[in-house]
Simulated assay, not measured.
Amino acid sequence: MPRPISKLAEGWWDYTTLEADLLQDAARLSAKDLEQLSRPGFTVRIYDTPQELYTAQALEYLNAWKQSTSDNPVGICGPVGPTEQLPLVAQMVNALDMNLGKLDAHFWGMDEWLENGVPVEESHPLSFARCDNTQCFDRIREELAMPTANKHFPSGDLQAYSDSYDQVRCALMQGGQGEIKHWAFNDPLPREGQYADAPPTPEEYRKLATRIVKLHPVTLIQNARTSGGGNVSMIPTHAATVGPQETWKADAVSIWHPGHHDNPFGMRLSALMISKKIADSAVPMSLLADHPEVRFSFLRSGIGDVVVDMH
């Protein structure tokens, strides 16, 4: 039976092309049900306050970096979205006198915007590297700072960026979840060519490495909402992103759900699919079902309900 046409963008794959029964099952999940989705290799955690959530997220940076030594460097790959953890990371590093240079600690940015086929400069107001630096690394005391060479952004030689995951152990890849159910900019693919009738198999999608991608229309709308006051015209249509290939080189993947990047339904759907090991590349986040160590962290007030509520 042919898969449904997307209700969001007819020329693309996305979660609206899944079977109706699965979508209905996700919509019915309560917050208590979410907690019970944990299984070996997949952990669901719920935090009661924003302070607890973002403190826990910031601590993951420090827990990764404290494992690093000059003989065995270790790093973390982090998102822009959420960003609330970034100033907390700097504050903790300064308070604990954690010398990131002496530890030979590393950091990977997940993605970066492109304009005219070229990654944007850090001077660009939407630059993710700019955000990581201004919100975190520039706030760390100079004598504790991470060397520039230890910060890896997908904004130059993408093969060199990808290769760095083989040279330094990535203890953790953090991420948020976008409305199109991506981590980084691993969006569903267009419904064209060899994928006109079915999206890539999970095995095909997981082979994708760091690359330049065309973004799903929903991703453009989301980033306009979260970063540009709704001004879609200012949002680039392409980006460079870390891929599944690098993601599977990370010891663990940690996804943070404060409740304002994706909606109550979307957060439930990806959690259910990972818990039940239902992998479908129309929901890229679901492919993490096959990663050996995945954690989802929710803010309780952001979980919400999937109900009709007219405004």
Rank of each mutant, 00 (worst) to 15 (best):
residue 132 D to G: 04
residue 132 D to H: 11
residue 151 K to D: 00
residue 178 G to C: 15
residue 208 L to A: 08
residue 221 I to W: 09
residue 219 T to Y: 01
residue 205 Y to W: 10
residue 221 I to S: 14
residue 189 L to H: 13
residue 204 E to R: 10
residue 144 L to W: 03
residue 157 D to P: 11
residue 142 E to W: 04
residue 187 D to I: 03
residue 141 R to F: 02
residue 186 N to R: 02
residue 174 Q to S: 13
residue 198 A to L: 08
residue 185 F to A: 00
residue 210 T to I: 03
residue 197 D to M: 08
residue 149 A to G: 07
residue 145 A to F: 07
residue 155 S to N: 14
residue 192 E to V: 15
residue 153 F to R: 01
residue 146 M to A: 00
residue 141 R to K: 15
residue 143 E to D: 15
residue 134 T to V: 09
residue 210 T to P: 05
residue 171 A to Q: 03
residue 178 G to A: 13
residue 182 H to C: 08
residue 176 G to T: 06
residue 145 A to N: 02
residue 218 V to I: 12
residue 187 D to M: 04
residue 189 L to T: 13
residue 209 A to P: 10
residue 187 D to T: 13
residue 146 M to S: 03
residue 165 Y to W: 13
residue 183 W to Q: 04
residue 128 F to T: 06
residue 133 N to T: 09
residue 214 K to G: 09
residue 163 D to T: 01
residue 134 T to D: 09
residue 161 Y to C: 04
residue 191 R to E: 02
residue 170 C to T: 11
residue 206 R to E: 12
residue 206 R to Y: 04
residue 127 S to C: 01
residue 212 I to S: 05
residue 210 T to C: 06
residue 193 G to V: 06
residue 192 E to Y: 05
residue 150 N to A: 10
residue 129 A to F: 10
residue 182 H to A: 12
residue 229 G to Y: 07
residue 204 E to C: 10
residue 129 A to N: 11
residue 224 A to M: 01
residue 212 I to W: 04
residue 146 M to I: 01
residue 182 H to Q: 15
residue 178 G to W: 06
residue 131 C to V: 15
residue 169 R to L: 02
residue 149 A to T: 14
residue 192 E to P: 10
residue 179 E to F: 11
residue 135 Q to C: 10
residue 194 Q to Y: 07
residue 165 Y to R: 02
residue 131 C to N: 11
residue 177 Q to P: 01
residue 168 V to D: 00
residue 144 L to C: 05
residue 127 S to E: 07
residue 205 Y to N: 03
residue 203 E to H: 05
residue 182 H to K: 04
residue 163 D to E: 08
residue 217 P to S: 03
residue 148 T to P: 04
residue 217 P to G: 03
residue 127 S to M: 01
residue 164 S to P: 07
residue 177 Q to V: 15
residue 137 F to H: 03
residue 149 A to S: 13
residue 132 D to W: 11
residue 226 T to K: 09
residue 139 R to W: 12
residue 204 E to T: 14
residue 201 T to C: 12
residue 224 A to T: 12
residue 166 D to K: 07
residue 174 Q to Y: 05
residue 137 F to N: 02
residue 146 M to K: 00
residue 230 G to M: 08
